[in-house]
């Protein structure tokens, strides 16, 4: 019998069963064998592979200490001499996705072994780290765990046995932006004409080289002097008047709020809180200025260091919120800000 593929599983504090956001500051830790989703992964691997250890790190800790956490995690992983690493799946959890991707990168660079992960296509971890991992596309929540694990296991076994890996669509991972030379029966000119004919006849065809889409916005010109400028505050950190009057969702937001700051010099615990469900709310609830710095902007306004603080702030929750929704909110917000004579924006994120 061939040897079992050895893998180390990387999990965040939540999927390891240690705790929610209040435990997001957990430094790297390790456990023998499989844990949490690792149990399902183990079942999907069957007799062909095993989860030899699980390395865990809090999402907050990892993201705030990217370099140091990567170093510690890779050491913990290397000890077990695995054939590969499975990280996540992270679904649409942004910080978890970034952590999984960063683990893949450091594992490839330091140990030279591959990583399989699973993420929702909009997870920022995909764009940042697609080159370093084989990322299976998942749904946006852990509800799709059961569909994700067999796909991850399949890729893991293939990579662990060093079998040849085919292109993204065929193997079921998100494109990594890696080009591979292959032999095909038809030469390039024929294939190009086939494609053109299909396009002209409105038949489906698949490009062999998708052009990268860069949706970049040119930096707007700097303001001449903030002393004469009207500055607006916008946040994806979910700061809202106490009680969350607009019922902005704690994740996957479908709306944003616009709140009056007239006469507000300080965001007190009695009047403001966060609606965000993606980070430990303790500190923002004690003092929302920690996320939305109204107090110091009022001070700077009084000192004449800024022209004016715009009398409304805008807020939504950035976790799990679709890019389409966030873009639509921001386009509306920006339109209002321009109409109201705002010159520049401070946007805070958690």
């Amino acid at each position: 019998m061939t040897q079992k593929v050895r893998l180390v599983h990387y999990l965040n504090q939540f999927f390891a069963g240690i705790g929610g956001e209040e435990k997001a500051d957990l430094p790297p830790a390790e456990r023998e064998g499989a844990l949490g989703p690792g149990i399902g992964l183990k079942a999907a691997l069957g007799q062909k592979g095993e989860v030899v250890a699980t390395v865990i790190c809090g999402d907050g800790y990892f993201n705030e200490n990217l370099a140091e956490a990567s170093k510690t995690v890779v050491k913990m992983i290397a000890k077990h001499k695995p054939d590969l690493v499975v990280a996540g799946p992270a679904f649409n959890a942004g910080r978890y996705g970034v952590a999984c991707g960063a683990v893949a990168k450091v594992v490839l660079e330091e140990i030279g072994i591959p990583t399989v992960s699973g993420m929702f296509a909009e997870n920022p971890g995909v764009d940042l780290y697609r080159k370093f991992a084989y990322i299976v596309e998942t749904g946006n929540s852990a509800a799709s765990m059961r569909q994700a694990l067999p796909k991850i296991a399949k890729l893991a076994l293939k990579l662990g046995r060093k079998e040849e890996m085919g292109p993204a669509e065929a193997e079921g991972y998100l494109q990594r932006g890696v080009r591979q030379n292959i032999f095909v029966a038809k030469r390039g000119s024929e294939r190009a004409l086939d494609m053109l004919a299909a396009k002209l006849n409105k038949r489906p065809f698949e490009t062999e080289y998708p052009l990268p889409t860069f949706d970049r916005v040119e930096p707007a010109p700097a303001v001449e002097a903030v002393k004469q400028s009207k500055i607006a505050l916008v946040t994806s950190g979910g700061i809202v008047p106490k009680g969350n009057p607009d019922r902005i969702e704690s994740s996957s937001a479908t709306k944003y709020g616009r709140y009056n700051l007239a006469g507000v010099d300080d965001l007190s615990a009695a009047s403001y809180e966060t609606a965000h469900g993606g980070y430990d709310p303790t500190y923002a609830n004690q003092d929302s200025d920690r996320v939305l710095p109204v107090d110091v902007l009022r001070q700077l306004e009084a000192e004449g260091e800024i022209g004016q603080l715009h009398s409304y702030f805008y807020s939504t929750t950035g976790n799990g919120t679709s890019v389409a929704n966030a873009a639509a909110f921001a386009a509306e917000i920006a339109g209002e800000l321009v109409n109201e004579g705002v010159h520049a924006v401070i946007l805070t994120s958690t």
Partner: peptide, 13 residues
């Protein structure tokens, strides 16, 4: 969000 605001010509930090 940053990008969509900046698209309207407002500088964002």
């Amino acid at each position: 969000m940053v990008k969509e605001i900046e698209r309207k010509g407002l500088p964002v930090v």
